[in-house]
Design a protein around this nucleic acid. Structure first.
Length: 153
DNA sequence: GCCAACGTTGGC
DNA sequence: GCCAACGTTGGC
């Protein structure tokens, strides 16, 4: 089993939105970065655990856990020219972009802010706190995952 | 709202 | 294939 972190702006889609969704599940559309796409397409498996992170929040923070319930399939938002994430390069017979489905698991009782993550030596290597990192989907180690869960409880 | 750090685009 | 210009992300 692998561990991941995904970012979402709470103004756009928060963990509460996920918890309220039908079956507490959503498709994770709109990823338009090749490195993130490769993680989604090639490595994310059903049952993998995922930290849900609020970016552009006050403060930005890890806020809970979800899990992957459906593996990669074509991101249909890329085919819809009315969609903000429309990408004419992605064709239905050879899609460029993929998405997975994630299901709500739990909210942390306490948000784990980026400041706390940066202050924790065990988390220094995380992609999230590396300079200039902008990946919206990134792997985390089991130790990092467990540490953030511990901080959130 | 600013802007650093990226990734992408497109002219050459 | 280089690289300047541009657009985006996301912390602050």
């Amino acid at each position: 089993m692998k561990y991941w972190l995904i970012k979402s702006e709470p103004e756009v889609f928060s963990i509460d939105d996920l918890a309220r969704n039908k079956n507490q599940t959503t498709y994770w559309d709109g990823v338009r970065n090749y490195q993130a796409r490769n993680f989604i397409r090639d490595e994310m498996k059903v049952g993998d655990k995922v930290i849900f992170y609020h970016s552009n929040a006050e403060p930005p923070a890890a806020v809970g856990i979800c899990e992957i319930v459906k593996e990669a399939y074509p991101d249909f938002s890329a085919f819809d020219h009315k969609n903000d994430h429309y990408d004419p390069k992605s064709k239905k017979d050879s899609p460029t972009w993929f998405m997975i489905d994630v299901k709500f698991v739990k909210k942390f009782s306490k948000h784990v802010s980026i400041g706390e993550i940066k202050a924790n030596k065990k988390l220094h290597k995380m992609n999230l706190v590396q300079r200039g990192n902008r990946l919206s989907v990134m792997p985390v180690t089991k130790d990092e995952f467990d540490e953030i869960v511990r901080m959130g409880n």
